[in-house]
Structures are given as C-alpha cells and as structure tokens.
Simulated assay, not measured.
Amino acid sequence: MPAALRAIAPDAAEAEVAAALTAVRAVDEACHAGDGAGVLDEAAHLRLAHDGLAGARLWLATDAEEPVGFALLTGESLDLAVAPTARRAGTGTALAAAAVAEAGPRLLAWSHVDHPGAASLARQHDLHAVRELLVMARPATDLPAPPERDDVRVRAYDPAAPGDAADLLRINAAAFAHHPEQGAMDADDLARRTAQDWFDPAGLLLAVDAATGATLGFHWTKIEPAVADGGTTGEVYVVGVAPEAQGRGLGKLLTLAGLHHLADRGVTEIELYVEGDNHPARAVYAGLGFEVVATHVQYARG
C-alpha cells in the first residue's frame, strides 16, 4: 500500500517548510546508505539550504508519520526518492504521478546508480535516457609523479585575491560552456561553494603561465569534513582548462597535482564524475588508473 502523500506549498509556514526539508534530507540520507548514492546533488542541497522551497513544489510521502519518500519539482527538474525500506509498495508511482501532473511539457530527472525502479517510472511517463554521468575511482596509492614543467607552475587559490576568483569564473564558463550545470556557475554560486565546510583553498589548484602570470586552468579537489582527517574518499571536484591553453598537457598536469594533494591529506580512495560522452576526459582518467564504478542516468521528456 502506498504511503500517504502531502503537498507542501512554497509559501507554507516557515516551521512547516523547515520540517519538510528535514524530512527530505532524512530520506536522501536513507537512499545514500542503502544505494551508495543520494538523490539530491550538491546544487539541490545548496538551493534548499539558501532558498528553501522558493520556486519549487514538494510532495512528501509518510508512513506512520515517518518520511519515506519525496518528489521535488524545481522548474523542469524533478528529484524523486523512496527510502529503500519503503519500496515496492506503489509510493514511487504515486509521487511520480503527482509531480508529473504539475510539470510542464519539458521534464528532466536523474536516476542515481541507474536504479531499475527509476527506469520503470521513466517509461511510464514517456521519459527517455538522454545523458550518462559516470563515477570513476582509483586508490590514492602508487600515483604517477606530476610531469616536470618549466613553462607552468601550480599554486593554491587565494580567496583574498579578486583576480583568482575572476579567473576561475572565466575559465570555468569557457571550459564548460555546454555543460548544463557546471557552466552556469557565477559569483554567487562560487561564494556559496567556498562557504561550505569542506572548502579548502589549498585544495583549489591553479595552473599559471610562468612567463606571463596568466591563469590557464584549475583543479578543484574536495574532501568532505567527515573524512578530512585520515578519512577515506577524496574527489576530483572540477578540472577546467582555458580553451586558449588546450593542447599544452594541462589537464593531466592539474589532475595529477590534485591527486597528490588528496593523497597527502590522507584519503585512501579518489573518485570523480565525468560525462559518459566526454571520451577525451575519460581516456585521461583511465590512463591515470581510474575505473568506472557507477553510472547515473538522466531522463528527459520534451
């Protein structure tokens, strides 16, 4: 029997919205524990933390007053989750029906870890797989040494230097011009990310032309606070190279510099996310010992 559904309006009382967001995070954490991946990505977590339900619709599924699922519709993007212990009871079907009925003609939804239940719901609502995001990982041991370079030096990002932030945003926008999420990062997004507990300027590495001082690319690494001191997993968060600096081997140089930084911080495994159709990047990462360990699929309608 499906759990009970309740719609939470964006303009609901502050206490009701806060309680609903706590329930959403609880379901997301249950999915992370059961599936190895949560449903909400970093952008969604930041949006909920800073904007609440502004511009969004939320449906909560509860069983005996306990949250067991949710559907979050933000613009044309849908995040839907059912806790592992509450699946196969029709709750996901009911949540999807409620959200799709309110969605516009175009709809996007991610299936993290490529769950078969998500594929079934997508077929029911005429959504088709349009994008793959691969998770690749490798141990943080036996790393190749970074190449010796006289023409480029690698240094840490300086939050107090306005030029570093401007260069980072410029290169990111150019390098990810066709990326629907990363390429949209602006000054406000950068400020939100650098305000997170995990941010460490020493882990945001810039490649600088030794002759001109121009910033050519960056490698932003990430270690969650829970594993920052002798923990297990570090992340190749973003690697970007300015288009005018392509062909100089900076992608491999920056990647290796970041991998060694993560290893020096005590992580034992390093992971990254890469678009399934980004074959040049996949080749670089495979050459550095990364292997595909999971696949996320995006479905679309319209």
Rank of each mutant, 00 (worst) to 15 (best):
A286R: 15
D51N: 08
A119Q: 13
A12T: 03
R25H: 14
A161K: 13
A4F: 00
G289E: 09
A118R: 06
S77F: 07
T268N: 04
G213L: 10
W110K: 08
P2L: 05
D151G: 11
H125K: 02
G302C: 10
A257T: 15
L250P: 07
T233M: 02
R123H: 10
D197G: 00
A109N: 02
R192C: 01
D167R: 06
V267E: 02
T62S: 15
R47Q: 08
Q196R: 14
R106S: 14
A207Q: 12
L72M: 04
R88T: 10
E76G: 03
W198V: 00
L21P: 01
A61W: 06
R57M: 03
P280I: 09
A44Y: 05
F218P: 03
G183N: 10
L204M: 15
P146W: 13
D200G: 01
G75S: 03
V236I: 15
E29T: 14
G240K: 10
R170H: 14
R192A: 14
P147N: 06
R301N: 09
A145C: 07
V297N: 03
G302D: 10
W198P: 00
P10E: 02
A43V: 04
G90K: 05
A195D: 13
E102S: 12
A174M: 06
L60E: 05
A15R: 14
P146R: 11
T215D: 12
L73S: 04
D150P: 07
H128N: 01
R170S: 15
A26N: 05
A98C: 04
A26V: 07
V236T: 11
E235L: 09
A54S: 10
A300R: 15
A18W: 03
A281S: 08
S120N: 03
P225M: 04
V39Q: 13
V82M: 03
H128D: 05
S77K: 13
D142A: 15
F290K: 07
P116K: 10
Q196C: 08
R57L: 12
P147K: 05
E29C: 05
D158K: 07
T74A: 11
T295D: 03
